[in-house]
Design a protein around this nucleic acid. Structure first.
Lengths: 128, 128
DNA sequence: GTAAGGCATCTGGATATCCGAATGATAGCC
DNA sequence: GGCTATCATTCGGATATCCAGATGCCTTAC
């Protein structure tokens, strides 16, 4: 193969981040997906994707305690799924990264094809 | 955010399906992401993406008890992330859905941009 | 200066998930 | 038939995550 082709190949291999080979990297990636693995956080994500929302609006929308919603929002911001803009007493949350919508769309698409399996998957302990 | 990013975001969000409006659908989607939220399952996913693997190969690769690995593989199959082909005593696992690679690539890409935040996000209880 | 509102953090209890080990079920080999 | 290998399921314990409520800090209004 030509030198340029080899360079293109290695560039392509480096561009796509696969599942990390080191345990720490995998733990990090798993943490990221767990951030998406809560229905309340998904609802907040969708809510803040429509338009910018204050913390209190999120509390009302989620119907949970203020402290819990604040922690959920902090988790989403920390993981890069949400951006926060602070102005005075208020904190405005919004989804800005288009990859979030892609992730959610892909997940929803796969769930649509395997709804029964996902519902049945108990990961270990199912019916009490 | 830039105009092009905003356009990409709204285009992706408008593409069906978004985050489900009903709580049951959100719980299902959250369950799906939790299936991706375990480092062992991510490692198995990457292992079975390279080529078809038997259950025992997965046990050796994961370095966990056979029963636990079997449960992890069952979870991945149930959620549509992995496909299983049974032949005699053996079960052959493989990643066939290209959306899995897209999901993992997107997640890894976002983690690469927010590694410190993801590591710091404890979702409730952090350092012991 | 004082009071009130918005947000983040801490505490303790309930639930979910992960783990190894043991057990059960089925297929291939002697 | 009997035996072993492969895979699935169950059991009890340890850890992580979620929740409501209370507390503290900062900003705005009076």
């Amino acid at each position: 193969m030509s030198a340029s082709a080899a360079a293109a190949l290695s560039a392509a291999m480096a561009r796509i981040p696969p599942v990390p080979a080191d345990p720490a990297g995998r733990e990090l990636l798993a943490r990221f997906y767990r951030a998406l693995g809560d229905p309340t956080r998904l609802a907040l994500l969708a809510f803040c994707a429509e338009s910018e929302r204050t913390g209190n609006e999120c509390v009302v929308h989620a119907g949970l305690s203020q402290g819990r919603v604040s922690a959920h929002l902090g988790c989403l911001v920390s993981c890069g799924l949400l951006e926060v803009r602070r102005a005075g007493r208020f904190a405005y949350y919004q989804v800005t990264d288009p990859r979030v919508a892609e992730l959610v769309g892909l997940g929803a698409s796969m769930v649509a094809d395997h709804a029964a399996g996902v519902a049945a998957c108990a990961r270990v302990a199912s019916a009490p």
